[in-house]
Design a protein around this nucleic acid. Sequence first.
DNA 1: CGAACCCTTGACAGAAATCAACTAAGGTGG
DNA 2: CCACCTTAGTTGATTTCTGTCAAGGGTTCG
Lengths: 250, 250
Amino acid sequence: MRESQRAEIRALPLFRDMRAESFDRLLQAGYVQSFPPQLDLFEQGEAADFLHILIEGMVELYASWQARESTMTIVRPVGTFILAACIRDAPYLMSARTLEKSRLVMVPAPDLRAVFRSDPAFAMSTIDELAQCYRAVVRHSKTLKLRTARERLAAYVLRQSERDGGAASFVLPVEKRMLASYLGMTAENLSRAFKTLLDDGVKVDGNRIIITDRAALVARAAPDPLIDGPDASESGVVPLRRAATGRPES
Amino acid sequence: MRESQRAEIRALPLFRDMRAESFDRLLQAGYVQSFPPQLDLFEQGEAADFLHILIEGMVELYASWQARESTMTIVRPVGTFILAACIRDAPYLMSARTLEKSRLVMVPAPDLRAVFRSDPAFAMSTIDELAQCYRAVVRHSKTLKLRTARERLAAYVLRQSERDGGAASFVLPVEKRMLASYLGMTAENLSRAFKTLLDDGVKVDGNRIIITDRAALVARAAPDPLIDGPDASESGVVPLRRAATGRPES
DNA sequence: CGAACCCTTGACAGAAATCAACTAAGGTGG
DNA sequence: CCACCTTAGTTGATTTCTGTCAAGGGTTCG
């Protein structure tokens, strides 16, 4: 692992307050590994052996039942995932696969648990991280239950734009079919939902979204800090703290 | 507070491992209060001032947006709620109202935070509790995104039955309109969904549900431990540890 | 007894999934 | 370089599902 990556992990809220020796122990117990795109990291139902820290690439967390599948969230560097399952020593509720070539640190769950038992500061950070994850999922549930597909998409577009500092135009960070799944609709329906958003000031050109009338879009989306933010990192596709190295396109 | 109630709280996973003096401090800092039915305890968006512990009655947590409203979960004695917001010192994401005459202990959030900073065992229990809450919401999201309304209802019926030891018949613990909202549909739609479940071995008589063909119901619901359980207490309407005093009807 | 309220039912409209066909772009191999 | 294949995305036609509106039955409670 490069020193800069180590520093990035250390800077994460989950790790920044812990003792230096605890941090060392975690990373020394962990394995750094690279994976090709489209590789299954684990499947739901397996025992949670490792806390995963993504330092390069992109990972999809998805759930399946019967023949159906749904994207639950997408993780970008530098971010951690699957913390709760490790803590509870319980089976994963979601599956994970890489979307790009990715590099991960995998910390064995027993080491993780040992460290936050011995380092109160890390225990505090874990509490905070979990509370944040919990709230992120509650928000996702709220948008699913309270908004129509069209409204969810409108809110998503608005939030992405605000993540880019309120830019009127941005490029979708993921494929449309995955976005559709994340927002709880089919790919066909997403395509049509984008069409209806023409009336609400949103134009689409391939992967690029252009907001032509922000007021109209706000009226449609009715963004709400108790669902959409204000902390953009708390929920959504591409949720976690982004790497300092900002690539314009994915 | 009666001693027996104190003992019940102490027996909760969240409180059972902490030091005695920490537990005393929490309860001494807290207020015990009774509320009539249908009373709003707090509204989403307010600052999270208190951890709530329900010792008698029933409380609904619900979310709203624009003119819409949706039941997120229902809390029964003895259970806690709103832990995550207290930890993060953030606004409530959900509103709460009593469904019956209820008695609550309300622990000021600053005391809560002080105690788990000073009592590592309580910090551990908090981590565990939060991880469990997180997984409960993920499960709820999964059922919303992966199953149709009919399948969600079938799974709910099956789970309720299994909570009663696999009884072929049970009484709904909440009003149907609330169940509908919890399951992500309208009351009218729930009514129709029950009708279609006649083909899957479920009969309805008022608040009483009768499973006439369990195999057929299982085929429809395709229950999955990664969504529906196995720990029934982790999610769902009437989720938390039930009071020892079992009333047959609510 | 009357007034709410819950639940149900029917009729309808809107939303969304499904199925199928078609386009466009990118990659592969001849 | 081109023919071919695969895949993402779109579009249309159709069906299914779901929400909405309206009305009526039953219950509870004042």
